[in-house]
Design a protein around this nucleic acid. Structure first.
Lengths: 149, 149
DNA sequence: TTGAATGCAAACGATTTGCAAACAC
DNA sequence: GTGTTTGCAAATCGTTTGCATTCAA
């Protein structure tokens, strides 16, 4: 539950109300949040919080490898809790909900093909998928089993 | 040669010295360029050029589908000529040289796997590879045929 | 000639830095 | 108590907008 706070503490950080508030918001979200959004949400629990502290806390958490930064459609940077071993995110274009997925053989196949085709040696990639999550597919589509809806 | 200029002209744009300068720089580059870099290079041929016009011309060119925007390691946005049908870029981490490659079956396999695993319907992706180009691999490595170098 | 394009200055949004006050340890 | 952290104000960076001037057609 508080293992993010634990890790911060173990790495020599002081545990302040501001940090608890930011960490609390980020641990729980399913939707990537911008620093401003994190500020608003975290102020519900710690009203004195400032935007600068959000940025600084984001850096701390990121240094622990707990954070994933994603590019939103509106061009903003937003942040998600990074689950260990899952390296990429799919983001719902409608509700924003994000899920992570692991790299697999298909990515290796892609890299091998591109290395072959370009003579580059590839050692990194930026990959992010987008689409509709199951709930948004449901609510966007008329129900096919009731054609007279 | 001047087919970018042609296309701009055909789509109703006036062909000015500023636009020629920006288009000229972009048509030729192998390395993704930031707006500032484009400005500096284009000023060699048209010194009165302003940064604002670079941005506006980038938008014009992008509207013709001639431009690819990439994310550089330093976080900057940079631009490349987009070759038709090639949808993604590999960028050399050392010299910056970029090459495009086409999507293939491996990307479709990846999308299919992630749709299966997450129940999302996927309809878009952000993909960019990085590594070393052939020349940079050569110059970074000691030559293995002369072990006494 | 005339509307489109330019480029400067200024506005803007995201992020970082300087610094005195507040706080965890 | 002491050194870390905070939060404000201000600086910075990339990008966009207002507007009078310049220019392609």
């Amino acid at each position: 539950m508080d293992n993010w706070v634990q890790r911060l503490s173990n790495s020599g950080c002081r545990i302040t109300a501001s940090r608890r508030a930011v960490v609390g918001v980020l641990q729980q979200t399913e939707v990537p949040l911008t620093p401003h959004e994190i500020l608003e949400l975290a102020r519900a629990v710690h009203p004195r919080l400032g935007l600068v502290t959000v940025y600084r806390t984001l850096n701390l958490i990121a240094a622990q490898g707990l954070l994933r930064r994603v590019h939103r459609h509106d061009g903003c940077h937003a942040y998600l809790p990074a689950s260990q071993g899952h390296n990429h995110a799919v983001i719902c274009r409608r509700c924003g909900r994000a899920v992570e997925f692991a790299g697999g053989d298909d990515i290796e196949a892609l890299v091998a093909r591109v290395e072959q085709a370009t003579s580059y040696r590839i050692d990194g990639h930026l990959l992010q998928l987008s689409g509709l999550c199951r709930e948004c597919i449901r609510s966007a589509l008329p129900d096919p089993s009731h054609p007279k809806d």
